[in-house]
Amino acid sequence: MNGNDHLIEIQDLGREYMAGDTTVSAIKEMSFFIDDGEFVSIVGQSGAGKSTLLAALGGLNRPTRGNVWVDTMDLYGLSSEQRADFRSEYVGFVFQSYQLITYLTAMENVKIPLSIAGVKKEDQADMAAVALEKVGLQDKKNRLPDQLSGGEQERVAIARAIVNRPPIVLADEPTGNLDSKTADDVINLLKQLNQEGQTVIMVTHNKKLCQHTDRTVHVRDGLCVIGEG
C-alpha cells in the first residue's frame, strides 16, 4: 500500500506511551484502509486504542511506527505546521464531550475553522448559517455553549466540523453523553453528511451504532481484530 488506492490507508501502525517507567502499547499493530465516501465505525471497549487511532488518522498523534496515508499524503512525513494545514483543509473533528469554546457563541464556534481558512467575512456568515441550519440550530446561533443543551452542543460541534466542507469527518464518541433520542438525531445527521459525500469515521464503544455505518473496524487491546464490510 502507498496511499494511491484508497482515501485513507494505515500501514503497520503502532503507538506506545510511557506511563511512568512502563511502556504502554495503545496501538500494537494495525493496517486497514478507508475509501472515499465511506461511513466507518471503529468499535472497541474503553482503553482499546480507538481514540488514539482516531487522533493518528487526524494527524494529531504521531505513531511510534508505521504510516498513515491520506489522499496520497504520508501524514507523518509532513511537518507539524503542514499537518495543521492538512487538518484545516481535510478534517473536521467532532470531539468527545463537544469541546466548544466557552466564550464564543454557537455561531462564532462554527466560524472558528473559517477564521484561518482565508474565507471572507460575509462568506463566513453564510457558510456558518448553512452549517447551523443543517444541524437545526439556526435559531440559537447567538447562544453561548452553557446556554445550550448537551444535544445542541453536540450539533454545534458537528456544524463546526463540517462548516468548511472537509472531505473527512472524524467523530469521537459523538453520542457518548447524549440520551438515546438525541443520539439517534446525531447519528442521522452523520449519515446525512455521509450521503452528501463526506467520509465519516466514527469511534464508539456502542456496538448498536454500527448498524448505521457501512463498515466496522473492531479494535481490541491495540489490535485491529476484525474489519468487516
Binding site: G58, L60, S80, E81, A84, D85, F86, R87, S88, E89, V91, F93, F95, Q99, I101, I112, P113, I116, A117, R160
Partner: peptide
Amino acid sequence: TREIGIFRAIGFRQGH
C-alpha cells in the same frame, strides 16, 4: 490547554 488543543486540532498553526 483544552482550548488550545481544540484550536490545534481544527488546524490552527503555532503562529495562530
